[in-house]
Amino acid sequence: MTEDTPQLCLNAKVMERNLDRLATFAKENELSFRPHVKTHKSKQIARKQMDAGAVGVTVATLDEAEVMIDAGIPSVMVAYPITKAEKIARLKTLAERAHMIVSIDTTVGADLLSEAFVQESVDVWLKVNSGLNRCGVEPGEEAAKLAQYVSELPGLNLTGIYTHAGHAYGATSEDERLAIAKQEAESVVTSAGRCEDAGITIPHRSIGTTPTVFDAGVYDGVTDIRPGNAIFYDMVQVGLGVAKPEDCAVTVKATVASKHTNRLVIDAGSKALSLEKGAHGNESVVGFGYVAEHPELMIEKLSEEHGVIPIDPDSNCPLAINDTIHIIPNHACVTVNLFDSYVVSTGEIWSVDARGGSK
């Protein structure tokens, strides 16, 4: 096993515990479990999720879809509108190898997919906006109108409605997070109801988002969950109150490279930890990661290969040059994508198979 740093470390026992919690929740609430793999980007972990009861996986890109199909995953949902000709052609090729579900949120996107799949047909899910204000039609009447349009197009099988309440990552209180979870579930269930009032059956009503999954997932009418980060957790989730540091399965191992009167310098900078403090405005995150062995320390500054930790000259900081620390990242999904492999607590090395994978 490599001992060099910076190193992406995975605690297999913690990951398995997180996975078991999700799988048990899905089973107890009769939900289809379709986890998002953009967090881990690993064939090995995706197979473990399938073994735990997942019906398939969710991806953000076709690169990720291809890696998952290569791993033998039988059903892949692409939670991103596919409209570019090159991507549609690639999607058609992938659809010959596995069951694909594609996102739609515009009539233009629907038309382009219909033209491409008029001979073969493909399952599509309509995305509704539950408050993030990114992709997605407005729930209710606008969703039903697009569903009607899609249902009349050849080549498209409208089988689901889904949303992503990413604004939950910016919640400043538990009450706000729970309100977002309610809004998330209702946006999907209400939209599906409006569609079914018009005679359009919507068998899948899917929610995602780790901060809300255990709350939105219990709403009557929700059938499908797609959490990603919950396989690992990170300091954003800790700040939101949905996890504790001991629930975080991924850390970055770093070495003290330099020590001065008022600071330590470690060999993990922005190319190992990223500069993110929460993509959706979460203010609970302090610094650039949580030093597990010394929570009193804060990583104050990152350059590309350096992390700077201020120390009190009178504190007698015990860390010396070549000592190592483990850092829980602010955002695990971004951090994982910076590494080629995991060093697993079992002694194994697992590849980050879909690293990059942005197309």
Rank of each mutant, 00 (worst) to 15 (best):
F214Q: 06
D215R: 00
D215T: 15
A216P: 04
G217C: 09
G217Y: 01
V218Y: 06
Y219D: 05
Y219T: 03
Y219Q: 08
Y219I: 02
G221D: 10
T223R: 05
T223Y: 11
I225A: 01
I225Q: 03
R226K: 04
G228Y: 05
G228L: 03
G228V: 00
A230Q: 08
I231G: 07
I231M: 10
I231P: 10
Y233I: 00
D234I: 05
M235A: 06
M235T: 04
L240T: 11
V242T: 02
A243P: 02
K244V: 00
D247A: 09
A249G: 05
A249E: 13
V250L: 11
T251C: 10
T251V: 11
A254H: 01
A254N: 13
T255N: 12
V256L: 08
A257F: 15
K259G: 14
H260V: 04
N262M: 13
N262T: 14
N262L: 03
N262E: 14
R263I: 00
R263F: 12
L264F: 06
V265M: 14
V265P: 00
I266E: 14
D267Y: 02
D267K: 06
D267F: 07
G269M: 12
S270C: 07
K271M: 12
K271W: 08
L275S: 15
L275D: 12
K277M: 08
K277Q: 15
G278F: 08
A279I: 06
A279P: 10
H280I: 03
H280G: 00
G281I: 08
G281H: 09
N282K: 00
V286Q: 13
F288I: 11
F288W: 11
Y290A: 04
Y290I: 09
A292G: 00
A292M: 10
A292W: 01
P295M: 07
P295I: 02
L297V: 07
L297C: 12
M298H: 11
M298D: 09
M298E: 15
